Computed example of a mutant assay.
Amino acid sequence: MSRTTPNRRSVNRVLSALALLAVTAGAVTACGDHDSASTHTSASSVTSSASPGADKAGATSLHMIDNGGHRLAFHVTQGHGSTIVLDSGGGNDSSYWKDLVPKLHAATGATVITYDRAGLGKSDVVPGPWKVESAVSDLKAGLQQLGATRNVTLVSHSQAGEIATYFAEQNPKTLSGAVLVDANLPPLFTDEETARLLAFDQPEVDAAKKDPDTPQNRQLISTAESFAATSKAYYKATWPDSVPATVIVSEKTPFDGSPADAQHWRDAASSFVKDGPHRTLVTAEGSSHEVPKDRPALVLREIESMVAAHH
Rank of each mutant, 00 (worst) to 15 (best):
T41R: 11
T41F: 04
T41W: 09
S42L: 11
S42I: 13
S44H: 14
S44V: 14
S44M: 12
T47P: 00
T47D: 01
T47N: 12
S49H: 09
A50R: 13
S51K: 12
P52A: 11
P52V: 08
A54K: 15
A54R: 14
A54Y: 15
D55N: 14
D55R: 15
D55K: 14
A57L: 15
A59K: 15
I65K: 02
I65H: 05
I65R: 05
D66Q: 04
N67L: 02
G68E: 10
H70T: 01
R71E: 03
R71H: 11
R71C: 01
H75Q: 14
V76E: 01
G79V: 08
H80G: 13
H80W: 15
H80A: 15
G81S: 15
S82E: 11
T83L: 12
I84R: 06
I84V: 15
V85D: 06
L86W: 03
L86F: 06
D87V: 03
G89I: 08
G89V: 03
G89K: 05
G90I: 06
G90L: 02
G91L: 02
D93I: 04
D93V: 06
D93S: 04
S94T: 06
S94A: 10
S94K: 07
S95E: 04
Y96I: 02
Y96E: 01
Y96S: 04
W97C: 07
W97P: 01
W97T: 07
D99A: 09
P102K: 09
K103Q: 12
L104M: 09
G109T: 02
G109V: 07
G109P: 07
G109S: 14
G109M: 12
A110F: 07
A110D: 12
T111H: 07
V112P: 06
V112W: 06
D116G: 03
D116Q: 03
D116K: 05
R117N: 10
R117Q: 11
R117Y: 08
R117H: 10
A118Q: 08
A118C: 09
L120N: 01
L120D: 01
L120R: 07
K122C: 00
K122S: 00
D124Q: 06
V125E: 02
V126K: 02
P127L: 04
G128Y: 05
P129Q: 09
P129H: 10
W130Y: 10
W130V: 00
K131M: 13
K131D: 00
E133V: 11
E133H: 00
S134N: 10
S134P: 00
A135V: 00
S137M: 00
K140L: 09
K140A: 01
L143M: 13
Q144I: 12
Q144P: 00
Q144H: 13
Q145T: 12
G147V: 10
A148L: 11
A148E: 05
N151Y: 13
N151D: 14
V152K: 08
V152P: 06
V152D: 03
L154S: 12
L154M: 15
H157F: 10
S158T: 09
G161V: 01
I163Q: 11
I163A: 13
A164E: 05
A164N: 06
T165D: 03
T165S: 13
T165N: 11
T165Y: 11
Y166Q: 11
F167Q: 04
F167C: 05
E169Q: 14
